[in-house]
Write a protein that binds this DNA or RNA. Sequence first.
DNA 1: AAGCTCTACTTTGGATCCAAACACAATATC
DNA 2: GATATTGTGTTTGGATCCAAAGTAGAGCTT
Lengths: 224, 224
Amino acid sequence: MSNNDKSVVSRLRKLIGEGFYQPGERIGEVAVAEQLGVSRTPVRLAFRTLEQEGLLQRAGKRGFMVREFTEADVLCAVEVRGVLEGLAARRLAEQGLTPTLAEELTVWIQRGRDLLAKGYLEERDVDVWSELNRRFHEAIVASAGSPVIGDAIARNNHLPFAAADSIVIDSEALDREYRKLQLAQTQHELVFQALRHGEGARAEMLMREHAFIGLRYGELLGLG
Amino acid sequence: MSNNDKSVVSRLRKLIGEGFYQPGERIGEVAVAEQLGVSRTPVRLAFRTLEQEGLLQRAGKRGFMVREFTEADVLCAVEVRGVLEGLAARRLAEQGLTPTLAEELTVWIQRGRDLLAKGYLEERDVDVWSELNRRFHEAIVASAGSPVIGDAIARNNHLPFAAADSIVIDSEALDREYRKLQLAQTQHELVFQALRHGEGARAEMLMREHAFIGLRYGELLGLG
DNA sequence: AAGCTCTACTTTGGATCCAAACACAATATC
DNA sequence: GATATTGTGTTTGGATCCAAAGTAGAGCTT
């Protein structure tokens, strides 16, 4: 993709994510082209990409519509990420950690520990966590022996709510978020422990459970 | 996608699968356009689709190349399908089978039983099995509560070797294939049993193991 | 002789044009 | 009055044209 082409895809992705184009709404090539100030050609290319990503859907015989996602879809997408990252973790545990990878994971875990050491959360900490969380997950997936798993996760992550780094949003309740991140950190450490000891099944299950942290742990911590 | 557009994608997919374009080979728009007798436009659209499917890869700054797959990639793709279908099966077991679905699954299982009842395999039986196997798997995935899992599986299945119905190929050794299908049939029945009894974990694991049948069971039955 | 640069050719990306398909509506016929 | 058919308008798909970016090759300089 050229710069422009890529930007059309991501700009469109953003617009859809922000709800500029309503779910279920039919989306025309000319309308988008005018909106983005380009010709129809890059838009047509972008539509094919976004169709494969699952954000657009064929609307009958003619054109595309913005796909609508239900609550069940969100839950499912998170579970899909869970089982895929779980698969990656299990394979990694089975084949054994390389010293390099062990070192890298140690870095991200230590950074997480440092971040949370002060006992509370500041606004800017959120980005830092998001970054190190992403790196931790990426390192595991990238080392699972084949890019196929990573590709599958990447495609799933195109669904706006499914990505691993879409955990923290609520910067109002930084207290609750702090406890959530503390839990996430513990899970990271447990995963690492399981990986080091070659405990494939345990690593897999921990990773699966970890996927739910953005989804179900909110209620839990809200109540507690 | 129009008929032509769709046909460009699938024809190209076929050509790549057949090795007409070598893995790692750089693939030009004009060359493909001439080969298929169309203009560059539908080819460009098809390239975007195939890129998302994972069959093509960006070649540096310029154009695409045919992606090459290692043995490890094949194994991984099969495992990915396994965990995803396993997820679908578990969810289904947890939410309970509808009478309609139970009936449908019974049909495909019965057809499989009928097909294998005569004790050996004929050449044309292969297609029949392929069809009912596909239907069985599709029924389960489609009923898992969200199209998201099915989408993820569909995308993974675009890798030519990962699809569930790419089991049987060797029509020379119909005897060995017969025993393989017998095993597959048994696994289908066990999955169905687990689903009916709401045994989520068991359904998941059976489905996972079932994914390997085209891959590892060959050796096993070859030796036995 | 080797390395660097400039130029020419190749290839892709974007815009526009034309044709075909589809939807909607209006009219005509049964 | 209802249904079918035809006609018009809108929208997408395919082809072509032009521009921009890249690559390779040749020539020049050190």
